[in-house]
Design a protein around this nucleic acid. Sequence first.
DNA 1: TCGCTAATGTACGAACTAGTACGTTAGCTA
DNA 2: TAGCTAACGTACTAGTTCGTACATTAGCGA
Lengths: 221, 221
Amino acid sequence: MTSVDEPAQTNGRIRDAARTQAEILDVATREFARAGYDGARVDEIAARTRTTKRMIYYYFGGKEQLFTAVLERAYGVIREAEQQLDVEHLDPVAAIRRLAELTFDHHEQHPDFIRLVSIENIHGAEHIAASEKLGRIGSPALEVIRRILGQGQESGLFTADVDAVDLHAMISSFCFFRVANRATFGALFGRDLVAPAQREHYRTMLGDMVIAYLTAERAAD
Amino acid sequence: MTSVDEPAQTNGRIRDAARTQAEILDVATREFARAGYDGARVDEIAARTRTTKRMIYYYFGGKEQLFTAVLERAYGVIREAEQQLDVEHLDPVAAIRRLAELTFDHHEQHPDFIRLVSIENIHGAEHIAASEKLGRIGSPALEVIRRILGQGQESGLFTADVDAVDLHAMISSFCFFRVANRATFGALFGRDLVAPAQREHYRTMLGDMVIAYLTAERAAD
DNA sequence: TCGCTAATGTACGAACTAGTACGTTAGCTA
DNA sequence: TAGCTAACGTACTAGTTCGTACATTAGCGA
């Protein structure tokens, strides 16, 4: 399998701290996402790596800290995607729809992230609490929502009494549920929420829902 | 603590198969919900019971089957609540809102159920698949939605192209997310989605969202 | 080129954990 | 009331699983 014609110095140094750490994180992400925190095995993670279990403890300290590092990286990825978002040139309705679709797409493309978040919730978010990075960074998406919402409400397009965090929760809940509960929903109702054929249908449904909520006339209380 | 003046035959028979099984299920529900499938310990479940580990294996066969039994009972509870639902006398808008609120209330009142479903999804719904009871029963709520939706669409009140399963997913996603992701959402955004003070706010928000979606004018494609 | 240290590998152990073999008894029934 | 069986308890085991003590080496800097 491995080519032997290469000289002793193979492509890339044999000792590469950064590569080793990254490889451990990659494998650990898959394993934790697959089996849950307690279901994942440190030995198994090590075995799927080109290095040994010793290195997991050398670089991360232990299973708990490894999981925290995995979480930190996973949250970093979605934050990065949110930062790419450019909706300045769009009208509020189109901007919100674009934002919702970004969340929709990211969740669909990163089921491992969704599973990690589910797992972290089972454990009461204790790893987020223990993490310095994940403390109270929030999400770039929130800032974007705040801005769009402000514009939309000023222009009278959107109902006035909507909060950015709440809207983020609304969008996330739909995107999250679809991926996180795919298995049970499919087993109980016979419908695969993540089937490619239904993708556009649910993507549109999400946008319609959010826009309908934002533009609906609400009974004054 | 325990009264000793009672004769040997204490209140309730010493041997009571039904009570023992129910007690095991109660404790197992709490333990699985608290720690996840792999995190839960059979020994710990037994210890919190008035009986022994032997009985778990005697009545349920093993850890897997115990979890399946726990799931079956938890799903049974929500199905029962859905069957109590009486919305025949309401107009479609009020009926949908009532249904959404029932889901909202049930999810909030049964966080253990939400956690069990999350856990089951991490494990690919394999226990639902292995269960005879949970096979393809669907949910009574689905039938209710179908009926209300039919009425609403006939009368022109609701948009025509909405499907009952999709609407169920929409309602569930919001209710589920709020409870399931309470920990991470709170840790990251500093807002407790299940705080009693916000309860009515989110309950109304859910209803508004669903009704807005159902009654909004959609661009014909 | 000669160390020196970060990086890596091996082997092992202590604690835990699902599951079981075997023994006991309550309480119904004939 | 004798005996039979469902219900229950104790003690144990085989296999894991996280973590670590100890040994080794690559490759950079002086």
